[in-house]
Every structure is written in C-alpha cells, then in structure tokens.
Amino acid sequence: MIAIENLSKTYGKLTVLKDLTVHFEGGRVVSIIGPNGAGKTTMSKCILGMVLPDSGDIKFNGESVLRKYAYRSQFGYMPQIGRYPENMKIRQVIEMVRDIRKGAASIDEELIGLYGLKDMYDKRMGALSGGTKQKVSAALAFMFDPQVLILDEPTAGLDPISAEILKCKILKEKKKGKLILITSHIMSEVEEVADEVMCLMDGAVKFHETISGIKHHTNEERLSRAIAKIMNEED
C-alpha cells in the first residue's frame, strides 16, 4: 500500500533519513520503533507531505505522493503532541476539518462518542489538558474512514481507559483492511496491537519483521526482551 524508496532527508548537517526503503501492506498494524532521533516522526511526516524529502520517493497505491495533496484524504494522522489554534473550540476544530474533508464517503464518530467529546464541545482548545487534546486528535484521525492511519505516540498522555478504547479502535480498523502505522516506545502496547515491527536506527531500517517472527528468531516470549536482544546482538 505504501512504498518508500530510497528516502533521504537531512536537516542542515544532520542526516535524519538515510536511503530508507521500506514497504507496508494494508490490513496490518505496523509499529515503528527506534531510539529518539532515529527518524520515526520525520518518516511519518514525509509520508504526510509535511516534510519534503531531499531524494527518494514515496508511493501510495503505486503513485508518488510527493508534492501532491489529494491523496491525504485517505490518510488519518494523529500527531505526537496535538497542537491546535488556542482560540478555537473543539466543535469548531472538528467542524473545520469536516468542512475541509467534505468529500469523505463516511463519517466515523465512534471515538467522539466513546470519549464523550460532545460534552466538551464548547471548550477552547487552549484550555484543554494534554490528554483531552490527544482524544481530539484521535477522533479526528479516525473520523473520515481513511485507508491509512499514522499515529505518533498515540497513547502517551491518555488515561488507561482511553488508551484501551483507542487500542480496540485500532484493531477494529485493521480488520477493515487498513494500514496503521504506530510509533511507540511502549513494548507491551506494541505487542498488543501490532503485527509487524519496524525498527529505525540512524535513519535506516534496522529490521522489519512480524512479531511472531521476531519472537521465534530470538527465542524470547516477551517482545521487549526479544528486541533488546536484537539490539545487543548488533553491537
């Protein structure tokens, strides 16, 4: 569904993505892991067109997405720290995005309901707690029934119940054949929802394997250990 080919990105002297080539299929939840500064967020932003790569290409269903925008109607994005215009109310943010994505085939308001956002519709974004903002971000990401979801640290800041709701939603959407990319540091969570793990290190793919594959390969029951083992092996 998404093919990244020889993607490179540097910020000044700092190389963030180094000739990255990776491929994701639909109907899967892929967890992107890696140390801080490995290029996880940059890669997601490249896919979304928020960051423009220096070289390489990104294809969505066989077509390059670079310098295009219409493809984003098939994408949902939940940023690591949702930042919104402080003066807008929740209702307005949601309505605005709906306004922008008028062409969407169906509207999925499940998360709005589950998170009880409607009760807070008239609160200013600036007055919301980090967790509530994350709920809004999640609701927006899932709202337009996109084929691809990119979730950057989705559960960070969410209370356990809300995190649970989100996880259920992720699994539910996966079943519809969607591709879900999650960057996360919490291994238990990764284990719970992900099918594959892609590890980025210094801007390149360290490994990209199914969870069962990793466990099998390292002879470890727990994913966190298995990954730690791989990391150590390499050194």
Binding site: L48, G49, M50, Y69, A70, Y71, R72, S73, F75, Y77, P79, R83, Y84, P85, V93, V97, I100, R101
Partner: peptide
C-alpha cells in the same frame, strides 16, 4: 502563533 493550525491543516488534503 498559527504554526499549530498550519500543521493541523497540512496533514489534511489541502494544497499548501
């Protein structure tokens, strides 16, 4: 101050 707003919009299907 509108950085957030633009960030939010840039991930949506709109031309920059």
């Amino acid at each position: 101050n509108s950085y957030e707003f633009m960030e939010l919009l840039v991930s949506q299907p709109i031309k920059r």
